[in-house]
Amino acid sequence: MTAPMVTSEQVHKSFGHLQVLNGIELEVATGEVFCLVGPSGSGKSTFLRCINHLERIDAGRLSVDGELIGYREHGGKLYELHEKDVARKRQEIGMVFQSFNLFPHMTALANIMEAPIRVKRESAAVVRERAERLLDRVGLSHKADVYPNRLSGGQQQRVAIARALAMEPKLMLFDEPTSALDPELVGEVLDVMRQLADDGMTMIVVTHEMGFAREVGDNLVFMDGGVIIESGHPRDVLANPQHERTRAFLSKVLM
């Protein structure tokens, strides 16, 4: 049994008076594909964003690879970390967004090379070679010198995945990676993710693609109202939900 990649203990988060996360308890094992599903407003995306400290948690402990995220514990209290330390920790965590967020003023290749060169200070030659390999892996070698606005949504998202992988992260977070795509482009992105899972990457995926969750996922958590309603192996939860709310949700998303 290896140590968990992500541990969440009693994580709370609120926006003003709105409690969005209300005591999230979970563990993500190294190498597993962990799916978060739930209706919109259930807190699943917020929780994902807490994992790399894009959102600050109000209470609880959230750690990645044994290290607390965004905080330092001292004398029974949590102190927020300096920006520098948060940034260092984020290098180990890749993130893919619903809206791709590629840098529009850089070519596909430059998008991928930016962070390893500027953040990790690796040599340009080494990074270029890795970036080209990654582009090849997501099937876009021929688009290296193209600007994002000339790429389809599916191609942009694949470049975004390559960009995150270029930092050689231990953990990948996917925030509804296919929700902004035309239906016929969803498959190409899921294929890349499936391949990544086969290679043993630890992945946390917020998704509405139940087919992907059933097929690739090792674990699935259903969230609603900022709490975990139920969890288990995707095949079990999807085929045989125990809670009324899970059943109600699945009846709406499954065909």
Binding site: N52, K84, A87, R90, F103, A115, V119, K120
Partner: peptide, 17 residues
């Protein structure tokens, strides 16, 4: 777009960079 800042931060880039 705010997403640009988030993407950069998620890659470990600091505010000034």
């Amino acid at each position: 777009n705010d997403g640009q800042v988030e993407a950069a931060h998620a890659l470990g880039m600091r505010r000034l960079l």
